[in-house]
C-alpha cells in the first residue's frame, strides 16, 4: 500500500492557501545536503522535483516533524486555519 493510498483513506478539508511555505527555496537545493524532509514526513508532502522541492500541503497530517526536522529551519509552518486540514474519523 503506497502512501498515496493511505492518504486517500483520510478526510481533508483543504484550504486554498498553503499553511506550509519554504522560506528560501534555493536553500533546499543549494545548501541542504541531507534533505530530511523527503524522508521524515509521514505524508510525503515534500517531493524532489527537477530543480526544487515541491510542497503538497493538501495531504499534511499536521504532525510538526518537518518544522523541527529541517536542519535549516527553512519551513514557515502554521496550523491550517481553524476547521481546515485533516479530519480524523476514528483517531
Amino acid at each position: 500500500m503506497t502512501v498515496e493510498d493511505k492518504l486517500f483513506l483520510d478526510r481533508f478539508n483543504v484550504d486554498e492557501d498553503s499553511h506550509l511555505r519554504l522560506i528560501d527555496p534555493d536553500t533546499c537545493i543549494e545548501k541542504c545536503r541531507e534533505q530530511p524532509c523527503l524522508y521524515i514526513c509521514p505524508a510525503n508532502v515534500y517531493k524532489l522535483e527537477k530543480d526544487r522541492i515541491s510542497v503538497n500541503y493538501e495531504g499534511c497530517l499536521e504532525c510538526g516533524s518537518c518544522r523541527i526536522g529541517c536542519p535549516h529551519f527553512n519551513i514557515d509552518w502554521r496550523f491550517p486555519r481553524g476547521g481546515y486540514g485533516v479530519r480524523h474519523k476514528f483517531g
Binding site: D5, L9, D10, H88, K89, F90, G91
Partner: peptide
C-alpha cells in the same frame, strides 16, 4: 480493510 492513516508525536 485499512480505513484511516494518521500521524502524531
Amino acid at each position: 480493510k485499512p480505513r484511516e492513516y494518521l500521524a502524531h508525536w
